[in-house]
Design a protein around this nucleic acid. Sequence first.
DNA 1: GCCGAGCCTTTTTTT
DNA 2: AAGGCTCGGC
Length: 668
Amino acid sequence: MSGFTGTLNPQQRQAATHIHGPLLILAGAGTGKTRVVTARVAFMINEGIKAEHILAVTFTNKAAAEMRERVKDMCRDGQGKKVIVGTFHAFCAKLLREFAEHVGYKKNFVIYSSAEQVSLIKRVLKGLLIKEETMDPQKALARISKAKNNGEEVGDPTMDLYAAVAEKYANEMRALNVMDFDDLLCLGVKLLEENGDVRATLHQRHRYITVDEFQDTNSLQMRLLRALVPAPYNVCVVGDDDQSIYGWRGAEITNITEFENFFPNPTVVKLEENYRSTTAILHTANSLIKNNAGRREKQLWSRNINVDPVRLVVVEDDAEEAEMIAKEIEAGFYNNKEPWESYAVLFRTNDQSRILEQAFRAKKITYRVVGARSFFDRREVKDILSYLTILHNPHDDISLLRVLNTPTRGIGGTTAELARDHSMVKQFSIWVALCDEDFLRQIPEKSRTAVRGFTELICKYASSASAQGTDLVTLTEALIKEVEYMEYLQKMAKKPEEYNAWENGISLFLTQIANFQENNRSEGLGEFIDSVTLNDEREDKDDIEKKKGVCLITLHASKGLEFPIVYLPGIEQGIVPHKRSFEEGRVDEERRLFYVGITRARQKLTLSFVRFRTKWGQKQSSLPSAFLNELDRTHMHEVDYTMHMKETPTQEENTNFFAGLKAMLVQE
DNA sequence: GCCGAGCCTTTTTTT
DNA sequence: AAGGCTCGGC
């Protein structure tokens, strides 16, 4: 037996040493799933399988980053680095860069993230809707996305307004040589299903495939996997149906519950020993999740002795809730030398983090907000990124429009509008219009000069960007200088701090570029832009659990992580479960989400809810979550924080208070 | 063509 | 509470 499988329990070892034929690992929360998967990879390499023939696909970047890290650590002589690890989307992006022509795209396509999608759909709606009609851009996009993920046809564009929007959107995307996230999967599937040669190449390239977070995969991802894995199906999938929380993105829980329909006669291994949490926490989690119907029954157990009960705290309002958490963390840090990194606060919606951040800042608590994709949404970063994108693919209208008059260079709305009209007539991008003499003749002398200046600038930098071995940092710096971007920012800034923040953003962005080049020497501008859009660059340097500070993170993003001390604020009707989940019939998924949150905790867990919560400036009353009723109270300690602050309430007072609360809930 | 003031919507979760 | 968008004055 190899050294690295020796410390595994029997089930773990069985999973880690099974290489050939389909394997399904049902891994409950905290059962050492990642350890098993990495041990398995190490085992395969030890058995003589080439690392580069092993492909590990995950659903989120975080999982990919973690796997990459652990595999690297586990394998000697740098073999681990050769294992190919990435998200489905990143995998498809790479694949499509290589074979773009097979699906009717050019290799220099650009990937649109949600902000660009919204811009484009707005443009489509503007052109298509008569003045009386309205359509919410977000909703239109959601519908388009759903259709793509389910492989549905859009319907007749002449009959159905939505279908017309969807069709126009798709046509524009193709004309501009851009793809959205869904297209990556759709086109990836199309490529593999329709091209035998490509498929054969891929089968040679990736001979052993592992899929993590399998409960979150959707039908497209399943199709991709099936196309990627030939008989005798050397595929290993790992997941936990109780942690399926991406149904809203089309995740098919049946991919895992009916795995055998896709890959016949799989070996199934269940991991049920939990190495993470105390029995109090596990009991609480189990009592919650058993309320879901149709799950694969699992019995998580733990050898950890029970130290602290789970606490359920009621507080007056969200400010007090944040204050309570901050105070306790502060006390733990100074009294018990508990490092900041031991703590995590998990919340349902991103906007819940703001008030926590305020409370933490006031107490000088070091914290980090994980996942908030703020950085690349910053205007200065977006501006520069748009420039780089245009250098790569000038036909990307949305990015082009963003930089066309940034910094101000005398190409205003009127000119842009004209160019747009012209591009419509010619059925091509705005860029083509800008370069077209017919168009240039139509506009005033002054604008013409400005447009010429712009197109020349882009051409000049585009040719140096595509040249082999160009340093992207130098190029970007030169571009910023030439367009006088910093001067523009200086002028735009209302306060000096604002300018400083922007300047800082630019320098961070340049550092990102430098890091990317450092790590991916052979890759160029296109790959850099992909990595930014797909979000897969940021992780390796801030390995989330190691980084300093209290972790503020959404419940969704917390999956796969663990922390000694966890707070779950806002366990209220409308938040957990989220208000929209009622309308959409996704309460079960909210329960799983809550379950994921609970099972992140190793030692201490505090749930809280408030009586009043501020939303959009308005104070509103809040009701405790119905899920709280489902929790087994044996290992739970209930506290009214407001009373607690005045004097320690007697047990009786407490009981009375919660009895009243329960009565309230039952009515609900 | 440029810029500021005021109005309006926004957020569920991620690739 | 904040950022995007529209409109009106320059």
